[in-house]
Amino acid sequence: MSHSEIPAGAGKRVGSWRRKLAVGAWVFSGLCVLGVLGTVLMVVYGSGESAEHTKPCCWEAHVTPEWAAKTMGFRVPATAVDRRAGLHTNGQYDVALLAFTVTTAEADRFLKPLQPEGTQLVRNAHPEEPGYTRSDGFSHLGLPEPETFVEGMRMGGLCRGDAKTLEGEAVRFCTDIYAHEFQPGTTRIYLWAGSDAAIDKPTP
């Protein structure tokens, strides 16, 4: 077919089709770019939001072993040494920590009235790996986490009123108890108390 035989308007139709194809390609590319940018923004925002919810917070200042013992409801033996305490707070729950070292005989006298009737402290059958830490744990106090010990470790726990003794009634929060005889005749007591309600902060 010669140029003179090309139907009138055919060139316009081809040009129009090409323009539409080019415009469509640009639109598609633009949508792809917007989609990628949207995804990136969602990931960045989501990561920031997740980090905001999971960031470690907060170890309170002015926490003393005396304050912790009174707040948690424990009477620490007068002979206790190496007393350490902490208070960790976040948006979900607060944790009070107290640790001290006594003779094993004194530890047994401290622990007995905190054991609900018919129960006893148990061995750590499922220890954590050495070096294990937790955001609200005793590593903050410069101590290994008690869950990592097996030899010489006894564990238990109670909530207020579980033990029908004056000591058991005085406990204010549900508390995990660890007693670690780290050398013959010497035991470190670890007390980890969690509360869904805010624990009153110590004052300077």
Rank of each mutant, 00 (worst) to 15 (best):
S2H: 11
H3D: 07
P7N: 09
G9I: 01
G11S: 09
K12C: 07
R13W: 04
V14M: 13
S16F: 10
S16P: 01
W17M: 14
R19L: 13
K20F: 12
K20Y: 10
A22R: 11
A25S: 14
F28D: 11
S29N: 13
L31G: 12
C32Q: 10
V33K: 08
G35E: 11
L37T: 09
G38K: 03
G38L: 07
L41Q: 12
V44N: 07
Y45N: 12
G46Q: 11
A51P: 03
A51T: 11
H53C: 05
T54R: 15
P56R: 09
P56E: 14
C58W: 02
W59K: 03
H62S: 14
T64S: 15
P65S: 13
E66P: 01
W67F: 14
A69L: 08
K70M: 10
F74Y: 14
T79V: 09
A80D: 09
V81G: 02
D82L: 07
G86S: 09
G91F: 14
Q92L: 12
V95W: 01
L98S: 11
L98Y: 08
A99M: 10
F100Q: 01
F100W: 07
V102Y: 01
T104F: 00
L111G: 05
K112F: 00
K112G: 05
G118V: 00
G118P: 01
Q120K: 12
H126F: 04
P127G: 07
P127R: 00
E128M: 09
G131I: 00
Y132V: 01
T133A: 05
G137R: 01
F138P: 02
S139E: 13
S139A: 10
L141C: 07
L143Y: 10
L143N: 09
P144H: 03
P144D: 14
E145F: 00
T148K: 03
T148H: 04
T148M: 07
E151K: 02
E151I: 00
M153I: 08
M153P: 00
M155G: 10
M155Q: 12
G156V: 02
C159M: 01
C159I: 01
G161E: 02
D162G: 02
A163P: 03
K164L: 04
K164M: 02
T165H: 02
T165V: 06
L166S: 10
L166K: 15
E169M: 04
A170I: 00
A170G: 03
R172Q: 13
R172G: 01
C174F: 04
T175V: 07
D176T: 09
Y178S: 12
Y178N: 09
H180D: 10
H180T: 06
E181M: 02
P184F: 02
T187P: 06
R188C: 06
A193C: 07
S195N: 14
D196E: 13
A197M: 08
A197Y: 11
A198V: 04
A198N: 05
D200F: 04
T203N: 14
